[in-house]
Design a protein around this nucleic acid. Structure first.
Length: 747
DNA sequence: ATATCAACTT
């Protein structure tokens, strides 16, 4: 190889000639020492050399300098190299030192000077190719420093020569393979998805007897990849190595762990998250965050067994649950309609009777208030809001009010809902679009669509709250419900004119037309939707299929199903339930079971609705026993939790067959399982016992309805009225209705 | 990352 220094050797005869640039002025200026009798110090010599090397083209011919340089210690030589501006100059210097090194001089500075060459070369646009430099180091047997290795490894990755990087790493001297080098290589391997190689390297780093153990950076490199957005399952082997960091005293921070576990749970890898947490819990550094993330994942798959295990382990390992932990637990209880347990937990938190006292915040209160509203105990919810204000100095926010307003709307107490809305104004809690939507929906569902429209317009004018897709969808559905397609269409147009038309607007029209028993028109809107560039989603398809099934137009339903499959949208359990329902209601259990098989094959486990559909079908076909058997089977062999609809179907059927005692025992079982009976349950039951004239049972049930705040509806009143007036007990009904009004207005 | 509105199936 032709190198600058070998070229310069040919001009050795010039060495003694003073260089043309070297004037006496220069020399005078360059001699730093003020007292010329003192020999210059090493520092001065270094500075002088730097200046000379910078400004002189052919300094190798300067013998003076030559000897001075060779007398300098390694550190000074390295310093000189660092101050040279271009890689060419540095390379020339490198060659000079290399060619002139005395055998006694240690090799020490050469690798460092070479490193400087690489550093300079990397910054330049057209430098000596880095590959050539790498080859030169091999040729001259100058070992690479750790930093040189890092630079070259990065460069090789940059030009997609991963194999060269690995070779370079393998050829390094053992002492150069330090943690930094390993971290660099590891990061790049992971980034380019070479999980096999990365795993091997990381595993090697994590050995307990390694000279260069992993550090925080190693961990952050690993996490930056694990937390990457679209990381497949290849990273799972790497995941398994994380606990090994603990052996070296490196522990991931709780924030990262929380993110990682959240990510694992979201990509349906709860098991991996579970394993990871359990490996790490031993090191005693876990906080509530990662545990919460796992708990949240486990609750999504309703794995209550594991939820309880995690909670116990938190206790054993002294990991203090925080407000989020409690928030999730309370939320669970509420969603399982175990509101009394939720209230209990809230109380315990405040008292600190379980060893941990946490001041509940507005979110926790909102969760419980919503829980109360969702089971029809909105009056208690309201009291809880008063309590949180007065006793705990916790101000309700817009969510608190939204929950309560929804609660009162759903129970038909629109006036109370409006009062709460006015109260918000007094307490300076600004309503938002959800508040509006809730009230609009409440009014629509209570047959006051024009009031709802008025309110909607007023909110827009007075509060500047604009309607969103939900608002329009609610109103459009409401107009469709009363068969006012004209107004529905006008709202649809208004929404489209407001800007980006929303798929939800199409959907609400489609669902409205379907609800109005006009599936063909709905299908037409769906085709229009497609033409405007919106693809109907699963919900839309399900709605259409349901619409045609209800009209007994199976061929059309199947047509939609085909269209759906063409659009690559997979039918889900709702789709299958709809079809199964069509066949069972028409007595065709053979085809129903065919679809049931297909459903399971598609990966959709039968849901509570599937069982409900089949049970309902059996009852309709007069096979009550078959229905009861299936119910037993469901409880025995599946994880499906019965809901009140299933109980209602069976209780109704039993009562109609005169098996009132069986129905009553089923209702007891319902209460035992924590399934709340609703008005439908009571209506079926009361109808049944009325035919047997069992007044005592009626009394008990009526009391139950009152205490559970389960509103009687016109059917309840009709049943009781027919019965009681026939036996001259009309007062009982009066009392019942009055008692009800008293309890609901007590709040 | 624990709370509020609409929408498909018994």
């Amino acid at each position: 190889m032709k190198t600058p220094i070998s070229a310069s050797k040919r001009y050795v005869h010039r060495l003694l000639k003073p260089h043309k640039y070297f004037t006496t002025t220069h020399l005078r200026r360059l001699s730093v020492a003020p007292d010329s009798t003192q020999p210059p110090s090493q520092e001065e010599l270094t500075e002088t050399a730097i200046t000379q090397l910078k400004i002189t083209e052919d300094w190798t011919s300067n013998t003076n300098l030559h000897y001075q340089l060779l007398s300098l210690p390694p550190q000074s030589l390295i310093k000189i190299a660092r101050h040279l501006e271009t890689s060419n100059k540095a390379l020339k210097f490198f060659h000079f030192i290399h060619d002139n090194q005395s055998p006694s001089l240690s090799q020490l500075p050469l690798p460092s000077i070479f490193q400087t060459v690489i550093e300079l070369a990397m910054r330049e646009e057209d430098s000596v190719p880095l590959v050539d430099l790498f080859n030169l180091s091999k040729e001259l047997k100058v070992p690479l420093t750790s930093n040189s290795a890092i630079l070259l490894i990065r460069y090789f990755f940059h030009v997609k020569k991963v194999q060269e990087s690995l070779e370079l790493y393998n050829e390094l001297e053992p002492h150069a393979k330090n943690t930094n080098v390993k971290n660099t290589l590891l990061g790049l391997l992971l980034k380019s998805n070479r999980f096999e190689d990365a795993h091997k390297l990381l595993d090697e780093m994590l050995q307990s007897d390694t000279k260069f153990p992993p550090n925080e950076t190693t961990l952050s490199v690993v996490f930056s990849v694990l937390l990457r957005w679209n990381c497949g399952k290849e990273d799972e082997k790497i995941l398994g190595l994380i606990p090994k960091f603990g052996i070296h005293g490196v522990f991931p921070c709780n924030v990262w762990l929380t993110q990682l576990i959240t990510r694992l749970c979201r990509s349906h890898r709860n098991d991996k998250a579970w394993d990871l947490l359990h490996e790490l819990i031993k090191f005693g550094k876990l906080e509530a965050g990662p545990c919460n993330a796992l708990l949240s994942g486990l609750s999504r798959e309703r794995n209550y067994k594991r939820i309880n295990l995690v909670l116990n382990e938190m206790k054993e390992n002294n990991i203090k649950p925080d407000i989020v932990t409690f928030g999730m637990l309370v939320n669970h209880l509420c969603k399982a309609h175990r509101v009394d347990d939720a209230l209990d937990m809230l109380k315990k938190m405040k008292e600190g009777s379980d060893g941990i006292s946490i001041k509940p915040d507005v979110i926790l209160y909102n969760t419980v208030i919503d829980g109360l509203c969702k089971v029809g105990r909105q009056a208690e919810g309201f009291l809880l809001m008063e309590q949180m204000k007065s006793e705990h100095n916790c101000a309700p926010n817009v969510v608190t009010y939204n929950c309560l307003i929804d609660g009162f709307c759903k129970s038909g107490e629109i006036e109370r809902a409006h009062e709460l809305f006015d109260q918000m104004d007094k307490e300076n809690v600004a309503p938002n679009v959800i508040t509006m939507n809730t009230l609009v929906d409440g009014m629509c569902k209570n047959g006051r669509i024009s009031n709802a429209m008025e309110f909607f317009r007023k909110m827009q004018e007075e509060k500047g709250i604009k309607g969103n897709a939900v608002t329009y969808s609610t109103l459009i559905s409401a107009f469709c419900n009363v068969n006012n397609m004209d107004r529905a269409m006008r709202l649809f147009d208004e929404m489209e004119s407001l800007g980006s038309p929303d798929a939800l607007a199409y959907y609400s029209l489609i669902s409205g037309l379907t609800l109005a028993g006009r599936p063909d028109d709905a299908a037409f809107i769906a085709s229009k939707m497609k033409k405007s560039g919106f693809l109907p989603d699963l919900l839309t398809y399900n709605t259409l299929i349901g619409g045609f099934c209800r009209k007994k137009k199976l061929d059309k339903a199947v047509e939609i199903l085909k269209d759906m499959e063409d659009s690559k949208i997979k039918p889900d359990s709702v789709t299958y339930n709809t079809l199964i329902s069509y066949f069972t209601q028409n007595g065709d259990f053979g085809t129903a079971h065919k679809f049931l098989k297909q459903m399971v094959k598609d990966g959709n486990a039968p849901t509570v609705v599937t069982y409900g559909t089949l049970i309902h079908g059996h009852c309709l076909a007069g096979n009550l026993d078959e229905g009861l058997n299936l119910f037993e089977e469901m409880i025995r062999t599946s994880k499906v939790v019965p809901n009140n609809v299933i109980y209602n179907i069976l209780i109704d059927s039993l009562c109609k067959c005169g098996k009132v005692d069986h129905a009553l025992s089923l209702m007891d079982g319902m209460l035992e399982k924590g399934v709340a009976p609703n008005t439908t349950t009571y209506n079926a039951m009361l109808k049944g016992i009325s035919s047997r004239n069992r007044l005592k049972d009626a009394e008990r049930l009526m009391n139950q309805m009152t205490t559970q705040a389960c509103n009687p509806d016109y059917i309840t009143i009709e049943i009781l009225n027919d019965w009681f007036s026939a036996i001259g007990e009309a007062d009982r009904l009066k009392q019942f209705v009055q008692g009800f009004q008293a309890s609901s207005s007590a709040a």
